[in-house]
């Protein structure tokens, strides 16, 4: 994501700095070594990593913003853009791959008109591919929020999506 695009999302969300302090100080002892888990906690709070929260975190634990940006872009769970109300994780692990996970993925991309890592315009869905959630016996698997949809066929995708607002 470009610097300009990052700036655009600045006022997308209001940051509760007291809550942020709680996460950084209370839960993780303001410790640099806990950076990844702090970022996970921030993402749980806002559904993505808002830039102002990251700037605040940088000064708070004394790590340059560049390093935080490095970590946030290195690990695949982190998102610097706001994500949709429903997160679709399509498993593209080997077991799902050989059982036709790609066809399900193609269908999802076709229906939602978005690609991997993107969010629909109405913010209803974000599509993310993951490599193996360990439910190989149920492959191909699609996880939407916390619900697991196993042994899903590409012709069943549309019906499943209807359940989510």
């Amino acid at each position: 994501m470009s610097e300009a695009a990052m700036m655009e999302t600045v006022d997308a969300v209001e940051i509760d700095y007291m809550e942020l302090d709680n996460i950084i100080e209370k839960d993780f002892g303001q410790n640099k070594e806990n950076l990844i888990m702090i970022l996970q906690a921030i993402q749980r709070q806002y559904n993505y990593l808002p830039r102002p929260a990251l700037s605040y975190l940088a000064t708070k634990i004394g790590i340059p913003m560049s390093q935080i940006y490095g970590v946030a872009t290195f690990y695949s769970t982190f998102s610097l853009e706001p994500r949709g109300r429903n997160i679709i994780s399509i498993c593209l692990g080997t077991a799902c791959h050989v059982r036709g996970g790609n066809r399900v993925n193609d269908k999802l991309e076709e229906l939602l008109k978005i690609g991997d890592g993107q969010t629909t315009e109405d913010k209803r869905f974000t599509l993310e591919s993951v490599r193996c959630i360990g439910c190989c016996s149920l492959g191909p698997v699609v996880k939407i929020n916390e619900d697991m949809h196993g042994r899903i066929g590409s012709d069943e995708v549309e019906k499943v999506l209807e359940q989510y607002e």
Binding site: I36, M37, Q40, F74, Y75, S76, T77, V130
Partner: peptide, 8 residues
């Protein structure tokens, strides 16, 4: 316990 963040 420390959790990873999705990097093989």
């Amino acid at each position: 316990i420390s959790t990873g963040a999705g990097a093989f």
